[in-house]
């Protein structure tokens, strides 16, 4: 995994950081991801039964919140105020990007697997940030910030690794979980791709439907006029029957 992944990261970062407009986008995506991890960690503070871990989760959450602000600040400094603001303020973006939504990570995975997830994600992030720093990307200011962030990410890796090691000693299948999580990430990437592809295809067919089937009705349809209108009559009879209706 390691060598291949590093090669991939190197190639991908060279390409993506150097395209115009891309750095801002990537940094905004980082800000969103950091914000998402803050929420995940705070949910863990809320839900954990292991009281000795609460403070670690809490401090971890605060770090991620700060990282989100740092990345957003870089986006702002690189001239995209609107994007920077959205990365911090628009929670719809978090859902769109698939970072949060539905049940929390902690609820879905349970504590041991959640910690394994944290370990895997943090270790990968550290690796990714190191590659950027090694390649001198994307600019010196951002690199300074990355260096600061990297120090804190190292704490996230070390405490979660200690917990994962502990679970391993207890006989929990943490390595299988880690592999499964990485595989799932690939699978989710594929799903996202096929979803986007499906969206394009269905948009195409819906477009055809729109042109062929809807067009003739254009003559019949008109927009509602402004001003007060008389409301449509309500059905009589048993109010419960009407209340059950969706239309």
């Amino acid at each position: 995994m390691g060598v291949l992944r590093r090669m991939w990261l190197t190639v991908a970062s060279e390409v993506s950081w150097r395209l115009p407009g891309r750095p801002q986008r990537l940094l905004a995506a980082f800000a969103l991801a950091e914000r998402g991890s803050m929420l995940d960690m705070l949910a863990a503070v809320e839900a954990t039964d292991r009281r000795e871990l609460r403070k670690k989760y809490f401090l971890h959450a605060l770090d991620e919140g700060r990282h989100a602000l740092v990345f957003a600040e870089r986006v702002r400094a690189l001239g995209q105020l609107g994007r920077a603001e959205a990365a911090i303020e628009d929670s719809g973006k978090l859902v769109e990007a698939g970072i949060v939504g539905g049940r929390t990570l902690f609820e879905r995975l349970g504590e041991p697997e959640f910690l394994t997830f944290v370990y895997v994600a943090e270790a990968d992030a550290v690796e990714q940030f190191r590659v950027y720093l090694d390649r001198g990307l994307p600019d010196t200011r951002t690199q300074d910030e990355l260096r600061g962030i990297l120090k804190e990410e190292t704490f996230h890796v070390s405490y979660s690794r200690a917990e994962v090691d502990r679970y391993r000693k207890e006989g929990l299948p943490v390595d299988w979980w880690a592999t499964r999580l990485r595989l799932r990430r690939l699978w989710e990437g594929w799903l996202r791709f096929s979803r986007d592809f499906g969206a394009v295809m269905s948009a195409f067919w819906l477009g055809v439907l729109y042109l062929l089937v809807m067009a003739p009705f254009r003559l019949l349809a008109r927009l509602e006029p402004g001003g007060w209108q008389t409301p449509a009559g309500r059905p009589g009879g048993d109010p419960l029957v009407a209340a059950r209706m969706e239309g």
């Binding site: 269905s202 948009a203 819906l206 477009g207 439907l209 042109l211 809807m214 009705f217 349809a221 927009l223």
Partner: peptide
Amino acid sequence: LSTSVATFPKSWAAFPRHMR
């Protein structure tokens, strides 16, 4: 649906999105 039809063809981009 009615609004998409009434604003044909300007609603070409909105229609697939709403329908999906």
